[in-house]
Write a protein that binds this DNA or RNA. Structure first.
Lengths: 210, 210
DNA sequence: TTATGTGAACCATTTCACAGCC
DNA sequence: GGCTGTGAAATGGTTCACATAA
């Protein structure tokens, strides 16, 4: 059965919340309590959790420990995930140190840029290569995930170079470009300008409605 | 009439694309051409554009100049937007210089942090204050939008401090925390860890399906 | 009695299909 | 003839309501 994107977004949030509950020594939790903590409806929580089997106890709730481990299984990576980052600018460097990647399972193996001032240097101990060498390096390092923090103009070229070797399975894209990908490569985009413009549109729009 | 969030996300993308077309000297464009460029269906593009009035010409397409200006009106800010940023870490600094904010309409007026090593200093010419002084500064500077780049643990406190004066209308949140907001404050969240976990879940999930 | 699990109802969004205008 | 604008149909996602189990 297919799992919808909004569902998996919520699953990730349940995972976080349950980790907190687990650390605070809590043993049981109801769908209502989870929903209240994350601003979802209790029925939504129950439906999401039921996609992966019957895990709660009727009349009782969910056993925190059991539910956490269950979701952990769903989200856990089978093995180490080898990552490369293209575009060693401010945002790229911020991501190298970001909490999201601070897990033993994730490892940055290579950086790419087109700036001669950066090529050959290391950042946080990770070597920066010329983007032109990406096909060779991606293959050698068996990189599966590419983090894209290049300007929009360079984004497609970076994708083409990085996916040429065929090792890349997914891209986390921070550029505002529309990308053409080889078949079978998954894309997840974070478009900061778009989020800002969306927020400002709604602020303006709401004022006009009043 | 209410405009759905997916629609406004696409509108922002039409705006970008039309700017490119305008600069390249193109004069007319069809819904199919817009759709192909951004990976949307032509019917989707037409429906989106029709929400804001009849703007195309039947049998012809959309006049690039006219359509661009039309969307520009929809998205344009009525006036300067005064922004503050809480959490002057790597990500915060990256955002201060990010292209998304590089527009005469946006102006960062204040930064906030709890690190004594940062308080009193300036970053990119913008003064950093103690988060405890946020109520006073937010009011004085009449800040309408808050960009949140603090760790999850500090996020709620930063929101409480920054919204206390009642000037803040919207928050662009980069922390993975669930926030409680005063009534009437809009929230737009960018959760980097969540996006990464989502991508990796789908990679794993897809492999298991094969 | 309490809280889950789930089919059915509901609501939102996308896509279709074609009438209407250039 | 070609392409937009738009009701209607289809799809996708959320919420309800209640049977079920502890």
């Amino acid at each position: 059965m297919r799992i919808a994107e909004p569902t998996i977004e919520r699953i990730v949030q349940y995972h976080r919340l349950l980790k907190e509950f687990l650390e605070s020594g809590r043993t049981v939790v109801s769908s209502k309590e989870i929903g209240d903590a994350l601003s979802f409806k209790a029925s939504q929580v129950r439906k999401d959790l039921s996609y992966f089997g019957e895990i709660g106890k009727r009349g009782v709730g969910y056993h925190v420990d059991r539910l956490y481990n269950h979701i952990d299984q769903i989200l856990a990576l089978p093995k180490e995930c080898r990552i490369a980052l293209a575009g060693v600018g401010r945002l790229g460097e911020a991501l190298l140190r970001h909490k999201a990647f601070r897990d033993a399972k994730y490892s940055f193996r290579a950086l790419f840029d087109i700036d001669p001032g950066k090529i050959g240097k290391s950042f946080r101990g990770i070597p920066c290569f010329d983007l032109a060498d990406a096909p060779k390096i991606m293959k050698r390092e068996r990189i599966e995930v590419l983090v894209l923090t290049v300007p929009a103009e360079t984004a497609q070229k970076a994708v083409d170079m990085a996916t040429a070797a065929g090792t890349v399975k997914g891209i986390l894209n921070f550029s505002p470009a529309t990308l053409v990908l080889p078949a079978g490569v998954l894309l997840c985009s974070v478009d900061i300008s778009l989020e800002l413009e969306k927020l400002l549109f709604y602020l303006k729009y709401r004022e006009n409605q009043l």
